[in-house]
Design a protein around this nucleic acid. Structure first.
Lengths: 149, 149, 149
DNA sequence: GGCGTTCTAGAATATTCGTAG
DNA sequence: GCTACGAATATTCTAGAACGC
């Protein structure tokens, strides 16, 4: 557990977030969360790449991607206010005619722009890992927010 | 329970009360209660916003909004008319032609102008929350923290 | 519990399945399960109808619809392809140019074509209903099938 | 054993309806 | 009338569980 696996989910997500090729995943304004355009993500990450051999993920279902985010401790932040200012003007349709869908805003304390050093703390929340993370503390209360809908 | 959920009812109500865009919800003279113009509220908050994707609430019924107020501990103050004196001059029809309706006057001890710190005490009156509010009884079973959410 | 609520989920789903207007939900070949085209369903049921006031559901998320199916006891049947033979000819794009997505195949013993009388048994799987369904059995094991995958 | 994918369920809030007071 | 609340369903986010690799 000293380095990150470049083929595992955290590294893949990091590359997606910092890639200029994939526009469906990007940092929010403060670089502390991810904005994910569901429709565009399904098109350019899950489905298109699956045609050739360059698939990033094996799944074609967006829900499986969300399950991964949750398994690695990401939490959904907000629905309405996840939109960045410049997106509010265009109102749902980009200038290039590519329709955009709902934006999901996810956050993890170990996933911040310009802080690749934090990635090593992104652990899959298995029973073993959960026990190691808080071996004596109450595992129920979440640090920042009580519920995030 | 350390911060408020910006997507839950208390935060939405707070933003409505302090917004200059929405005129149907405003503080009363002492900043200790809310004045809600039913007709205007239905128009500008429930129905108009529902057309695009910017709905604050999913409901279009004013009574559902009232149910939320009650669920969060608000109580209606005025049996008769909660109209403030200076508002009576306009008397039912604003200068811009927008008709105004009856004003509802609601109050909660945890919802005061200039006291956003009190918002954390605005709890939904579920059975679980009510049990916690009245200790001494065995709520259900919260030894350490059996749940993860 | 003597009649069905025409505004609740089972009745809505029944109308969708038998409607010729909505093409995204239809019976499978034997009339014992539902085939649901996700992309088309989102377009014609969840999003389009939400623009005017004719929304069938309040949600715009397909996952919320799936949650309802599971809450009412529906189970997913096919993991691979639920596509019926005659649908394979069109192969992903209908004649009118509307792209079709993955088909979900769901089944409930109480939801069969030409058997509207069974609908009354479609109960929401709340704790109360589950207790009534099996008032002496272990509540964890499912009646017919242990797993459906 | 860990990880990824899939289907289902838990739990909290939101919405609706009815009705007690 | 009319205010408040119980209860049922609906929606949302997260987690459990099973399986394959």
């Amino acid at each position: 557990p000293f380095s990150i696996n470049p083929e595992a989910f955290p590294a893949k997500l990091w590359r997606l977030a910092n890639s200029s090729r994939f526009r469906s995943v990007r940092w929010d304004a403060r670089g502390q969360g991810l904005l994910i355009d569901e429709q565009q993500f399904v098109s350019e990450v899950l489905k298109e790449a699956a045609e050739d051999g360059s698939s990033i993920f094996k799944t074609k279902n967006f829900t499986s991607f969300i399950r991964q985010l949750n398994l690695y401790g990401f939490q959904k932040l907000s629905k309405g206010l996840a939109v960045e200012p410049q997106l509010l003007s265009g109102d749902g349709a980009e200038a290039d005619g590519r329709a955009t869908g709902f934006l999901h805003h996810f956050h993890s304390p170990h996933f911040c722009r310009d802080r690749p050093d934090l990635l090593v703390h992104l652990k899959r929340l298995t029973n073993a890992n959960k026990a190691k993370s808080a071996p004596g503390l109450a595992p129920s209360s979440r640090p920042g927010s009580p519920r995030q809908r």
